[in-house]
Design a protein around this nucleic acid. Structure first.
Length: 271
DNA sequence: AAACACCCCTGCGGGC
DNA sequence: TGCCCGCAGGGGTGTT
């Protein structure tokens, strides 16, 4: 479900309900997520939430004692803010209950998501310690793509989906950004010129920022925390449009598999 | 080292 | 209506 824009939309939706609130209870109904949910997570009870931040596709619930609850939505994870008394439904695995009477409820049918616990004073979990720059900051610039890609045989699409290169670019937005930049997704990363990486960098920033503005992309089941869908699907140029005419030149969009993932591109516009 | 394939898991849509 | 198959937004792990 979620790429960076959907995670950011979720963050914006939940933050007002969590910030400044005390956690009164943690309910874990199923610990079998991407990694087993640690018992120590309940150490967060009694703590005040000072902020909800994001790193890559991880949401960080920052606690006053410097502890953190770290959530990842995986492929099918969803967050809702509800009255704590609302009965849980299937796949509602975790409730973070707040003094306000609300709770943050994590639902994840496929259980590819995660809930990690970083105790006060502990290092950030290893999953977050080797991540590349955030795409929407100035830390992510074209020269980085050019420098890291020299000599690389990997397809440029896989290259920009590598979290060590830049975080938060998943399958939808990798396809969209490559279309916007006019680059064939199969092209070897090392064979893309510095000039074209300039265009790709702009495209990545642009597509992610616009998707956040429009509330993310709803494909099957993504909803904003208010239950409304995201509207960016209407702006997709290539993703999921195999056989349909290119928005620019009307050539049928092609699909193929790159790195075990479905890839869409315009054979005319992307070289 | 780099480039892949594979796996975790459930639900859903399409074809028959 | 029902069954079976393929596929899905992520990403860590293990093999060449």
């Amino acid at each position: 479900m979620p790429e960076l824009p959907e995670v950011e939309v979720s963050r914006l939706g939940i933050a007002p309900y969590l910030q400044g609130e005390h956690i009164t209870q943690l309910i874990v109904r199923d610990r079998r997520l991407r990694w087993p949910v640690e018992e120590a997570l309940s150490d967060a009870v009694g703590q005040k939430v000072v902020a909800v931040t994001r790193r890559a596709k991880y949401l960080l619930i920052e606690l006053q004692n410097t502890g953190r609850i770290i959530l990842h939505l995986g492929m099918s994870g969803k967050l809702r803010v509800l009255d704590a008394a609302v009965p849980p439904v299937k796949h509602d695995h975790i409730d973070i209950v707040l003094a306000s009477g609300k709770c943050l409820r994590f639902n994840d049918p496929r259980r590819f998501g995660a809930c990690l616990w970083q105790a006060p004073g502990q290092d950030i979990p290893a999953q977050l310690s080797h991540l590349g720059p955030e795409p929407l900051t100035t830390d992510f610039a074209a020269d980085r793509l050019t420098r890291l890609s020299r000599g690389k045989q990997v397809a440029v699409k896989n290259f920009i989906m590598d979290n060590a290169v830049v975080v938060g670019v998943g399958n939808i937005y990798a396809n969209e950004a490559l279309f916007m930049a006019g680059i064939d997704p199969r092209r070897k990363a090392g064979n893309v010129s510095a000039k074209r990486y300039e265009r790709l960098t702009v495209a990545i920033k642009d597509v992610l920022a616009k998707a956040i503005q429009q509330g993310g992309t709803t494909l099957k089941d993504f909803t904003q925390t208010d239950g409304n869908p995201g509207y960016f699907k209407q702006s997709l140029n290539v993703y999921g449009r195999a056989g349909k005419p290119c928005m620019v030149c009307e050539t049928p969009i092609k699909s193929l598999t790159i790195g075990q993932r479905n890839t869409f591109y315009c054979p005319q516009c992307q070289r």
